[in-house]
């Protein structure tokens, strides 16, 4: 597994252009919700998912995409697709 903080930093670079609430972006952590907290437009959530696919060279199927509403869920999906184990309290 990649270093979690490094992955969060990479994710932050991807989502930055779509964020509408900069204050919430400054306080971003694993629990941050893309739509409710960062006020990302839901159509731009598709862009985030496409950008993640490009960055990590993975394909995110719609079933995996369904859960990608938070930073934590996005990290889990990426790690799963990369074949890395991810130590999550939710799993």
């Amino acid at each position: 597994m990649k270093d979690k903080s490094r992955m969060i930093a990479e994710l932050k670079t991807i989502i930055k252009p779509y964020v509408q609430d900069q204050e919430a972006f400054g306080n971003l952590d694993e629990d941050t919700d893309f739509i409710n907290d960062l006020k990302v437009n839901s159509a731009n959530l598709v862009d985030i998912i496409l950008d993640i696919e490009d960055k990590y060279d993975i394909e995110i199927d719609n079933e995996s995409m369904e859960k990608m509403l938070t930073v934590r869920a996005a990290l889990e999906v990426v790690n799963k697709k990369l074949g890395h184990s991810y130590d999550s309290p939710q799993e």
Binding site: N41, A43, N44, V46, D47, L50, N62
Partner: peptide, 17 residues
């Protein structure tokens, strides 16, 4: 805004939605 914010012609965009 939609015109500015989103490129619906982007590869993969329509297929995802």
């Amino acid at each position: 805004y939609a015109c500015k914010e989103s490129n619906w012609r982007r590869k993969g965009f329509l297929k995802k939605i």
